[in-house]
């Protein structure tokens, strides 16, 4: 028996806004603990991890572990048809994922399961010297400020500030955010803004965002739901000076 019911489909929708812009296909694994997926884009620049715990769901029936391979663009088209006050139900029938949204009207979509073309490596565990929190709206606005001058951004964290900097052909930009965390080392790394914007498409997932950084290390951006009911995290490879 496989049936998941979620009274807030926006968690799924906002996750897949980002996931579908990064990867073409994903394997969603569901077992008695919850739902999770790991995926990496074809160029191995961005890794994404989604985990939704069993207790987040209104109904969670999963008698045996199941793997659902889906085309993210096709699933996103369906999720875009949900309204915020709809109740979402996921079931499986034969070779399809059945997605139902029920509000004023009931809509049912059958999304064909696919064969995966490539395997996703296990999530790397990286030790970071620096970790801070920042409201995701603040991060998004800062990236929009930087974006007007350049297509890459330097993240610089010291004991007081997160500074985002860019040098453009005609203008330079610098944004400073007083992070208020205990930081004992400085960290600096450069990233492509296009990749950061893909991750920020998930902004409605949760407000609490963690940034982990080290010199020339990947950027880890973690969005956490309240009471650890779910997490969406991204790992973005840096640009490195030659």
């Amino acid at each position: 028996m496989f049936k998941l019911i979620l009274s807030d489909p926006s968690i799924f929708k906002t996750s897949f806004e980002a996931i579908s812009s990064i990867v073409d296909e994903v394997q969603i694994e569901v077992d008695s603990d919850g739902l999770r997926l790991n995926a990496i884009d074809r160029s191995h620049i961005t890794y994404v991890h989604l985990e939704l715990k069993e207790r987040l769901f209104d109904v969670f029936q999963c008698d045996e572990p199941i793997k659902l391979n889906v085309d993210t663009e096709e699933l996103m088209k369906v999720l875009k048809r949900s309204k915020s006050d709809d109740v979402m139900e996921l079931t499986v029938d034969g070779g399809s994922l059945i997605v139902t949204f029920e509000g004023a009207i009931k809509k049912t979509f059958k999304v064909k399961l696919i064969d995966l073309e490539y395997e996703t490596p296990e999530s790397p565990s990286i030790e970071y010297p620096v970790k801070i929190t920042i409201p995701i709206k603040t991060l998004k606005e800062s990236i929009q400020d930087i974006e007007i001058v350049a297509d890459r951004v330097e993240f610089n964290i010291d004991q007081d500030f997160l500074k985002l900097k860019a040098v453009g052909e005609f203008s330079d930009a610098e944004v400073e955010y007083l992070h208020g965390e205990k930081v004992t080392e400085d960290a600096r790394a450069i990233f492509a803004i296009e990749n950061i914007k893909e991750m920020l498409k998930a902004e409605k997932f949760a407000d609490t965002t963690y940034i982990s950084l080290g010199d020339d290390m990947p950027l880890t951006l973690t969005l956490e739901l309240l009471n650890e009911e779910g997490e969406l995290s991204f790992l973005l490879a840096p640009r490195i000076e030659e």
Partner: peptide, 11 residues
């Protein structure tokens, strides 16, 4: 000059 690296070297 910078280049985009992949995550492979960090796994």
């Amino acid at each position: 000059n910078e280049k985009q690296v992949s995550l492979d070297s960090f796994f």
